[in-house]
Amino acid sequence: MSPETVRRWFKKHDGITFQSYQRMYRINHAFQEFKVGKNVINTAYDTGYESLSGFGYTYKKSPKMPPLMSINQDIILINRLTTPLGSMFICSTNQGICLLEFVDRRILETEFE
């Protein structure tokens, strides 16, 4: 399969691009690492970034703050589930479910932000 075919399939079935999904997954993983006391350098490299500047730039765009300032913030976990009605994303915090949405929604990426 060509990379273009895989990208189109992912976008069609998950409602967002693979790059957006991967970026969210990596940033959420980094956020969890910070919550348990891991340092920025190890977290950046463990989540697949090759430079601290790239990690810092991407991280600041998502939670809108530098890594160490975000430690006291709530984390939103994202998971995909299959239902009889179709695939859905479920997002939750420590307080409960905050988003349950079908993957084919056009504004899904905006809702994630």
Rank of each mutant, 00 (worst) to 15 (best):
E4T: 00
V6Q: 15
R7L: 02
R7C: 03
F10N: 02
F10Y: 12
F10V: 04
K11D: 04
K12F: 10
K12D: 10
G15R: 11
I16P: 01
I16D: 06
T17Q: 14
Q19D: 00
S20E: 12
S20L: 05
Q22I: 08
R23W: 07
R23D: 03
M24I: 05
M24H: 13
Y25Q: 07
Y25I: 06
R26E: 11
N28A: 03
N28P: 09
A30D: 05
A30Y: 06
Q32A: 09
Q32M: 07
E33M: 06
E33K: 15
F34T: 11
G37Y: 13
K38D: 10
N39F: 12
V40A: 13
V40C: 01
I41T: 09
T43C: 15
T43V: 08
D46G: 09
G48M: 00
E50M: 11
E50T: 10
S51P: 05
S51Y: 04
G54N: 01
Y59M: 05
K60T: 06
K64F: 00
P66T: 01
P66W: 07
P66M: 14
L68T: 08
M69C: 08
S70Q: 08
I71W: 09
Q73S: 11
I76E: 06
L77P: 10
L77Y: 04
I78H: 02
N79S: 14
R80Q: 01
T83F: 07
P84V: 06
P84L: 05
L85E: 08
L85Y: 09
S87D: 09
M88S: 00
C91P: 10
T93H: 10
G96H: 08
C98M: 11
L99I: 05
L100V: 04
F102S: 12
V103G: 04
D104S: 06
D104I: 03
D104Y: 07
D104F: 05
R106A: 09
L108C: 07
T110Y: 14
E111M: 12
E111K: 13
E111I: 02
F112P: 06
E113V: 03
